[in-house]
């Protein structure tokens, strides 16, 4: 295809991606180096019956003017990155030197918003991904044994948790885990603890969020593995049977190796996607006990009068760095695939 024709065909897609994905990334990097203007203060003299006193007041007009003139704010260098709300170097250094025991370090680090979010994001990412894959694999093996007529409805029911809007799915589970909902109330009865609730217990919040993650991510692995199962060569299975392999051994030595390449693909994609975890935090109103990096950005942006663009941008840049680290294996894989095809 001549270069010119190619350019014409691809133009709209590339322009859209440059304008609304590449440019915003640049904009985020720039914004992260600025902070909002301080309010302009003026000295006002108040004279009353008992003499005059000077007071400091906010000059709203001048503040608005300066904000209009330079909407980015004032240049701050890397202070956005190292202040208390982000990497918090000073605080971390102090915690290291004054705490004794890992427990104390952990609990004090959890008071720093960035590390609190990072901890949950990583735990969520690295627990949900493998468990969701195991669940998906188990469902795929199970559904594969069903009679032909039952498979359609089985697949229908199984993919519902994945198709559902993340915010809506988490709200539905949140209401059930509410102390006045069916699961929350039952949990209180089972544990014999009438005060147990998502709001009161950080541990329960983490567990429920991770269960939600497995519930909603499992079906993707199921669909991929189920399709993979249909391509397992029947001959190999048969000869394994003739050689006396048990059912478990056939799964272990024939099916799992056959699905391994698919599994790496699923794992890489899911790790990347789970790193962005955001909606469940909003849906479960979990911010007191668990936050994520994406949620931190959201939280900075929803401030009604004082949106903290600089702070949101700094967190965004660090989130993007995290995604890029998780992305490298995917890129290497794609690169290899392409070169193999070219040869």
């Amino acid at each position: 295809m001549p270069h010119k024709t190619f350019a014409l065909f691809i133009m709209p897609a590339v322009v859209a991606m440059l304008l609304f994905i590449a440019l915003p990334i640049v904009s985020v990097v720039v914004q992260s180096l600025f902070v909002e203007h301080e309010q302009v203060m003026v000295e006002v003299e108040n004279c009353g019956p008992f003499g005059c006193s000077t007071q400091l007041r906010v000059d709203t007009e001048a503040t608005a003017e300066i904000r209009d003139e330079r909407p980015l704010g004032r240049f701050a260098g890397i202070t956005n990155y190292i202040n208390r709300n982000h990497l918090a170097f000073d605080q971390v250094r102090e915690i290291w030197s004054t705490s004794d025991g890992l427990g104390e370090i952990w609990s004090r680090m959890m008071n720093l918003p960035f590390y609190k979010a990072l901890a949950f994001t990583l735990v969520y990412c690295f627990l949900v991904t493998p468990f969701a894959m195991m669940l998906g694999f188990a469902i795929a093996l199970g559904v594969n044994t069903l009679p032909r007529l039952a498979k359609g409805p089985a697949i229908f029911v199984s993919i519902l948790p994945m198709i559902i809007t993340p915010l809506i799915g988490s709200l539905i589970l949140f209401w059930m885990f509410n102390p006045q909902g069916i699961l929350g109330a039952s949990l209180q009865v089972i544990t014999g603890d009438p005060t147990l609730s998502l709001r009161a217990s950080p541990v329960l919040t983490w567990i429920v969020l991770i269960i939600y993650g497995i519930w909603t991510n499992g079906p993707f692995s199921f669909v991929v593995f189920y399709a993979g199962l249909q391509t397992v060569p029947g001959d190999t299975l048969e000869s394994a049977m003739i050689d006396g392999a048990s059912r478990w051994e056939r799964v272990r030595y024939v099916i799992i190796p056959h699905l391994a390449p698919l599994a790496t693909f699923v794992a890489l994609v899911q790790l990347m996607d789970n790193f962005r975890v955001f909606e469940p935090i909003v849906g479960f109103s979990a911010e007191a006990n668990a936050t994520s990096l994406s949620w931190l950005v959201y939280n900075d942006l929803i401030g009604q009068d004082s949106q903290q663009f600089g702070s949101a941008a700094a967190t965004s840049v660090m989130t993007i760095l995290g995604v890029v680290i998780l992305l490298i294996p995917v890129l290497i894989r794609t690169w290899r695939d392409f070169n193999r095809k070219a040869v």
């Binding site: 190619f6 691809i10 590339v14 991606m17 609304f20 994905i21 590449a22 440019l23 915003p24 990334i25 640049v26 904009s27 985020v28 914004q31 909407p71 980015l72 990347m272 790193f275 962005r276 955001f278 990096l293 994406s294 950005v297 959201y298 900075d300 942006l301 949106q307 663009f309 949101a312 941008a313 967190t315 965004s316 840049v317 989130t319 993007i320 995604v323 890029v324 998780l326 992305l327 995917v330 890129l331 794609t334 690169w335 392409f338």
Partner: peptide, 26 residues
Amino acid sequence: AFWILIAALVFRAMPHITLVSGYMLP
């Protein structure tokens, strides 16, 4: 063409909320 696809892969991985924080001010 391959490089465009690779760029698309990188773009797909970007968390949407971080892009949003780039849009708001402009």
